[in-house]
Design a protein around this nucleic acid. Sequence first.
DNA 1: TAAGTGTATTAATAATGTTAGTACACTAAA
DNA 2: TTTAGTGTACTAACATTATTAATACACTTA
Lengths: 121, 121
Amino acid sequence: MILIDYRDTRPIYEQVVDKFKMLILRGVLHPNDKIPSVRNLAVDLSINPNTIQRAYAELERQGYIFTVKGRGNFVADNKQLLDQYKDQLFASLRELCEAAFAVGMTEEEIIQNIKGGKAHD
Amino acid sequence: MILIDYRDTRPIYEQVVDKFKMLILRGVLHPNDKIPSVRNLAVDLSINPNTIQRAYAELERQGYIFTVKGRGNFVADNKQLLDQYKDQLFASLRELCEAAFAVGMTEEEIIQNIKGGKAHD
DNA sequence: TAAGTGTATTAATAATGTTAGTACACTAAA
DNA sequence: TTTAGTGTACTAACATTATTAATACACTTA
């Protein structure tokens, strides 16, 4: 269902969280879909069940999934998630723009880059 | 000369590197300016000299400063630094846009956000 | 009852950031 | 030459975090 990139320096549990977030946000996984059990996914990815549990706990904390003891974990029906995620992207975007302005780049330069790919200089 | 933010989760040496990079890129520090000695800055910031040394070694590796044994560390005269930094910003920007496109956002939406502050939705 | 599930706990290991202390070689100035 | 200031190198120790390991318990479903 997902794949771990061992060249990635980020913690495994963080990668697992992000992968599921994207699957849910992009509509690959639908509300009430069952996601793999902690033990099952751990075997699949050849990592420790505790690491998966940590990822799932974080996903639940952020409202992406909900847990039923003895039954499993399921995709939540939370319509605010996409907007939340977009807001986070916008925040990162503005942070990046601030850094760019700080070294003298202009709004036009940035927009041009977004539009035109790597066309600058 | 610089300040450490202990609420920042990033390593201290990384913060030191970034602070000096910005001072150099923004023209606060000029080529051949002497920057504080390893021991001096360590005392100033109340952190270990080894941590400063690691930061300075990284700054030298990235071409921001050069070192003269027995004399100190000095700002390098490297005209490519700003362009390098801009390229990095552009790369981060494009990565962020990819993530935004992946959840259905449009180029217009992104540009609108850059222009208009938090005006979206 | 049995198998599968989430949850909790404790311990151990590995990697990384940081501190601590010491030693050596170089430079500049008295 | 001597002294103080400088960068560099090295080893050891410590703290935090990510991860693994092993175990136990409670719940659900067939």
